[in-house]
Design a protein around this nucleic acid. Sequence first.
DNA 1: CGAAAATTTGACATGACTCAACTGGAGTGG
DNA 2: CCACTCCAGTTGAGTCATGTCAAATTTTCG
Lengths: 193, 193
Amino acid sequence: MFKYLLDHMLRYIDLDEEEKAIVTNHFKYKKLSKKDYVLKSGDVCQGNYFILTGCLRLYVITNSGAEQILHFGISGWWMSDLDSFDKQLPSDYYIQAVECTEVAFISKANYEALMIKIPKLNKYFRIMMQIAYTAKLKKLELFLCHTAEERYHSFNKAFPDFVQRIPQYMLASFLGFTPGFLSLLRAKRSKVD
Amino acid sequence: MFKYLLDHMLRYIDLDEEEKAIVTNHFKYKKLSKKDYVLKSGDVCQGNYFILTGCLRLYVITNSGAEQILHFGISGWWMSDLDSFDKQLPSDYYIQAVECTEVAFISKANYEALMIKIPKLNKYFRIMMQIAYTAKLKKLELFLCHTAEERYHSFNKAFPDFVQRIPQYMLASFLGFTPGFLSLLRAKRSKVD
DNA sequence: CGAAAATTTGACATGACTCAACTGGAGTGG
DNA sequence: CCACTCCAGTTGAGTCATGTCAAATTTTCG
């Protein structure tokens, strides 16, 4: 069931059969329907979620009551409120399935235990963290150096299939502008074509 | 010489005297004058830099030729273009000393070697990465959910001493607006007081 | 002290937002 | 199978936050 997760780990570290079995024992499987939540604001984030299929979004409710998406996760990515998960403190975030989604997830206690049993997983998660960090720095650069229009085109070019898959209002939120503005950009674009 | 670095590591993992000596052997010390560079765009990032004293900034040159600061590092923080460092490919970034700065740094080769000799450093760097990732996600949230004015007050409140220490044009760049606008905010603020 | 750099100030321009009305599909139920 | 509703997406008018640019002032540092 967790073959995809194990394969993902094997890209970065070696695991023998026994270690694979240990890893597998520490994870659980969950199938989420569209709009199911794995985390709601005020709760402690109960797991670190590896996405097998589907798509999750992490969002926050702003002062004005709007949903602001900070992060999407798709197949092969990890999703969690790491701060809440790590410190076991209440989160400000929501994590919700955008579409029908399958995850492998690990609890905090199992995460700690697994790291002790298989220390080289620290290397795997170090690399995962580094990839996630670099991606966020790139996104920040996109915000600091480029207009909303450029952000849209850049994202569109980088993830053309993903853009098709999600509702536009979510894309607009993620890219930091309004659905109305996105509409305008698309209209402009289609004239050019 | 690297006591501060070792102490920092000891906050997260145990190291015996022999291991401390090995760590020390893999790092080098460098003293940077104000405006010295440790990385310029086009070069491969040659080190992962732990800041002992002082302050470094990481910036990029935008299409319009302006410097856009993406990241500051102060005492106790790591600084590098991790992507360039890791893959040993040319970087788009500049890393420069904002003030006289002392660093402990490690080359890519030594980094690899050290991880093999002392695998538990993977845990230390996993935690460092996680802290850095969480900080960047928070900053992204600040951009997505708050106005320039709110970003300024929020940063001012979080790092009052640091704000005093750096030129305002750098602060403005880091927070994503113009020096002129920052001036305006300060003027508004001082009326309130 | 003098030159260069940083900051302030003000006039004007514009990117992007708000809000409301309209359009068009996708379900749902009679 | 049609009418109704509901939600996503589009469009447009008016507005505001923030940018641009240039001049004036202050600070820093050789």
